[in-house]
């Protein structure tokens, strides 16, 4: 079955992509770029770099822009998926949703309307096991945004490794964050994956941080040999 993977550039969408590749054929990545920083569905600091990830994965990218107005942005997602159907003949869509009923139900409705399969291979996954599998499988993931206590600015650009997972587990206990950042506490960017032929090297990034909220905005990056 040919599938399109909804890609925010973060760990969940690319891990879901990897799982999909092991069971079906991934035909393209699909990205919706929001102009609204408060978008419910699509905002993420380094979304423009999905093109570099698609290059690294050897996959075409379907990219559409949205004004990011709640609910109306779903029309833009449907448009993007429609382009993927027309251009790459996909029969289904993959998302990295873990717990968000808001996100999952909306994607399910769009797929149902378009007559497409919908897969959420991280749905209600064991978060600890998932984070460990991510590191063990060779994903290179850095923190590209923090949005809650107790994250300080040192987290911005930090690579998710075993030590980081240990720290996140502590925060989950002390501050009730979700281990995967599913509650919007943090966002990530994938610079390497088992299916990338080359990895992404960050050449220049701008850190902005204040009062437990900050972003690691990649201004320049390139593909390099692994």
């Amino acid at each position: 079955m040919r599938l399109g993977v909804l890609c925010s550039g973060g760990k969940d969408s690319l891990f879901a992509c990897w799982r999909a590749m092991q069971k079906e054929e991934v035909a393209c990545l699909i990205t919706v770029v929001s102009r609204n920083p408060e978008s419910y569905m699509f905002h993420t600091p380094n979304i423009r770099l999905a093109a570099l990830q698609a290059d690294a994965a050897g996959l075409p990218l379907v990219e559409v822009e949205t004004a990011g107005i709640q609910e109306a942005e779903l029309d833009d997602l449907a448009r993007a998926i429609g382009i993927a159907v027309a251009d790459y003949d996909i029969e289904g869509v993959v998302s990295g949703a873990i717990l968000s009923v808001y996100q999952a139900a909306r994607i399910q409705r769009i797929c149902h309307t378009l007559g497409l399969w919908c897969f959420n291979p991280l749905w209600h996954t064991d978060q600890q096991a998932y984070m460990e599998a991510l590191v063990d499988a060779g994903f290179g993931v850095l923190v590209s945004g923090v949005f809650s206590e107790p994250f300080d600015e040192h987290w911005l650009g930090r690579v998710i490794d075993r030590a980081a997972i240990d720290d996140l587990r502590t925060f989950a206990r002390t501050h009730r964050i979700s281990l995967t950042g599913e509650g919007g506490e943090l966002e990530t960017f994938v610079f390497d994956a088992p299916f990338f032929s080359r990895r992404i090297e960050v050449v220049d990034a701008a850190v902005s941080y204040r009062n437990f909220r900050g972003t690691y905005r990649i201004r320049n990056a390139r593909l390099v040999e692994k």
Partner: peptide, 16 residues
């Protein structure tokens, strides 16, 4: 057997 959907519809039940 062993489909991509099993992660979503089987694994959460076994976890419960």
């Amino acid at each position: 057997p062993g489909s991509l959907s099993a992660y979503e519809f089987v694994d959460p039940i076994t976890a419960i």
